[in-house]
């Protein structure tokens, strides 16, 4: 047993952190919220160069994956920097396409017929069309699985394609309903509408539930990174903010809230890594482990947001401070791709 990230994984996280620190990520997020996706897409291209999206795409489609642990490490860094866009949905869509492609490839025509799909779903179809582009950072996909993610697709107007899986049917949405602004304006939501059916059958439903697991894992990772950023920023702030003649960070009431924030994040992290390992192995217990990581990281990040806001005081409640980008994202991430109640139920499911 060696339950530690290796040097390469640590270095990968450090390099993403460095790159996103140097880039104006908050600026890209604010532009994204205003409907200007160009800076966000430029950031996306650089993340692809660093290999982030290839982690979700198999080698036969020009990727390196699937590598759930490395993907979790990367998503935590993207969460730490509040990178805008349908990150989770794109990697989950990749997992969905990969899984269906695999069924198509391994089981041959019979399965394709049963899927009632187009001529060859895989190499000649949607998987071949989208997966290499996802790996290269040239395509953003949104994915909506109403049973797991609710009725809305994230950032459908910015996405190059929106996949919708309802039961055992997957379709490529043709258009979307009007934008439904989120409390986190960087998250742009809309209902996917219409479109053509790509495939149908039990394999579709199975691939969608796999994709929902990947999405839950990636969301948990984002939450963990988000929580760490909130903690780091708040520790820095209370160290320099002075009241009553002392740094407010020297007061016990302040210290203890921050200590609790660190505890919650530190104990969420091993659940995340363990869940990623379980997913990589295709273990039976992966679903329960992902659910445990999701609810724990989501709650920890939301609690970190509340602490960050409380300890910043009124300035934390302003939109001018970039802290708002992190605070507003914590609650939606906690609830996306598996509410806490749904996750807790899955932990105890047999």
């Amino acid at each position: 047993m060696r339950f530690l990230l290796d040097d390469e994984q640590r270095e990968f996280a450090r390099s993403l952190d460095g790159m996103l620190t140097a880039a104006d990520t908050p600026g890209a997020a604010r532009a994204w919220a205003a409907g200007d996706t160009a800076p966000g897409r430029a950031l996306w291209a650089r993340l692809a160069e660093a290999g982030v999206f290839a982690l979700a795409v198999p080698e036969r489609h020009e990727g390196l994956g699937p590598m759930p642990l490395e993907l979790a490490v990367a998503c935590a860094e993207l969460g730490r920097h509040a990178v805008p866009g349908p990150l989770v949905e794109t990697v989950a869509a990749a997992a969905f396409l990969d899984r269906l492609d695999e069924v198509d490839r391994l089981d041959g025509l019979d399965e394709v017929d049963r899927l009632d799909g187009l001529d060859g779903f895989g190499h000649a179809g949607a998987a071949a069309e989208w997966l290499p582009r996802i790996a290269g950072g040239k395509a953003l996909l949104s994915l909506c699985v109403p049973a797991a993610s609710g009725p809305y697709a994230l950032d459908p107007d910015a996405a190059d394609a929106v996949l919708v899986v309802d039961g055992d049917t997957v379709r490529l949405a043709e258009t979307t309903g009007p934008l439904q602004p989120s409390a986190d304006p960087v998250r742009r939501l809309a209902r996917p509408l219409g479109g053509t059916v790509l495939a149908r059958g039990p394999a579709v439903a199975a691939a969608a539930s796999h994709a929902a697991e990947v999405a839950a894992l990636a969301t948990a990772a984002q939450s963990l990174g988000l929580g760490r950023a909130l903690l780091d920023r708040t520790v820095a702030y209370v160290g320099q903010r002075t009241q009553f003649g002392a740094a407010v960070g020297s007061f016990q009431a302040v210290k203890h809230r921050l200590a609790d924030t660190l505890i919650a994040l530190e104990f969420a992290q091993p659940l995340l890594y363990s869940a990623a390992l379980a997913l990589a192995e295709g273990a039976d217990h992966a679903s329960a482990e992902i659910a445990a990581a999701k609810v724990t990281a989501g709650e920890a990040a939301y609690a970190a947001a509340r602490t960050a806001l409380q300890l910043h005081g009124a300035v934390g409640y302003t939109d001018e401070l970039d802290l708002a980008l992190w605070i507003r994202k914590a609650r939606p991430l906690r609830d996306a791709w598996g509410t806490p109640a749904a996750c807790r139920a899955r932990v105890l499911a047999r």
């Binding site: 339950f3 530690l4 530190e266 104990f267 091993p270 659940l271 807790r344 932990v347 105890l348």
Partner: peptide, 27 residues
């Protein structure tokens, strides 16, 4: 049910945290 789940999750997190600590010491 949620509280039972939280106890299960907490025990698992504590166990994994210990494995990480043991790995760090072994390294």
């Amino acid at each position: 049910r949620d509280r039972v789940a939280d106890a299960v999750i907490g025990a698992r997190a504590y166990r994994l945290f210990a494995y990480a600590g043991a790995s760090r010491i072994a390294a």
